[in-house]
Amino acid sequence: MAAEIKICGIAAPDALEAAIKARAEYAGFVFYPPSPRNLAPKVAGDLARRAGDRIRRIGLFVDADDTLLNESVEAADLNGIQLHGSEPPARVAEVKARFGLPVWKALPVASSNDVAAAEKYEGAADLILFDARTPKGALPGGMGLAFDWSLLTAWRGRMFWGLAGGLTPDNVADALRRTKAPLVDTSSGVESAPGVKDVDRIAAFCKAARR
């Protein structure tokens, strides 16, 4: 079975249409002001209306309060919530209960202990997204950094999971062969500049992921 694909950080109509045309399952909308991919509610709403039911929309948040979550979920008619900060299992479960949407929890990985920490989220998160740990003070994702994929060989969790961090059209097929990830997530790997998606790279990434 082919891995599902998420193109994260979509902020413009051409990128959205490229992801839909390439048959990506998910479009990631970022609601985190420090990010170059951050969306204002109105822009997110415009993109959501354009997308309709052609692609599922996942909102990315970093240690967000309920006000931002509520505003964004409504504006973009989100199909899921991705928590990309330091949210503990209790907060993940709270968000899931409050909004009634699937919740993804991104975990930064630099060691086997980071992978093992995913077990604490069983029953709280619907999906664990293993991402590369970024340097202190940097954005928590979208930096083009990869981690040692062999760390995932010890993962025996029963949860649905995905792989992120430094994935590009050039390495995603190898990443899938080595990890057997059921989902792959890319952002900077399909950009021509921070926050600027490249429609040709989106197409190439999806083609390579399904090869």
Rank of each mutant, 00 (worst) to 15 (best):
W104D: 02
R210H: 10
S187H: 10
D170E: 15
E71V: 10
A106V: 12
V115I: 13
F29K: 04
G9Q: 08
A203H: 02
A164N: 06
K21R: 14
A22Y: 00
V190N: 01
I81S: 10
E74S: 15
L47G: 03
K197P: 09
A11E: 07
V184T: 05
G52V: 06
A193S: 15
I5W: 04
T186I: 03
G28D: 04
T168R: 08
Y32L: 07
G123K: 05
F31T: 02
F31N: 03
E25V: 02
S72H: 02
E191Q: 14
G162Y: 11
V73N: 05
G28A: 11
G52A: 07
Y32E: 08
E122N: 10
R210A: 01
K21N: 10
F147E: 07
R158L: 14
G45R: 00
G165E: 12
M1K: 05
L145W: 09
A93C: 04
L129H: 10
G9N: 09
N171L: 01
E94N: 02
G165Y: 13
V30G: 06
T67H: 13
I58K: 01
R210C: 01
K105S: 06
A22P: 00
L163H: 04
P41S: 07
A124H: 11
N79Y: 12
E71W: 01
G100Q: 06
E74I: 13
K197N: 11
A193H: 10
M159T: 14
A209V: 08
M159V: 12
M1N: 07
K197F: 12
M1V: 11
L152E: 00
A19G: 02
L107W: 04
A154E: 13
A138M: 14
S35N: 08
L78P: 05
A18N: 04
A2S: 14
D198W: 08
L129S: 11
D174I: 13
I10W: 07
T179A: 05
A3R: 04
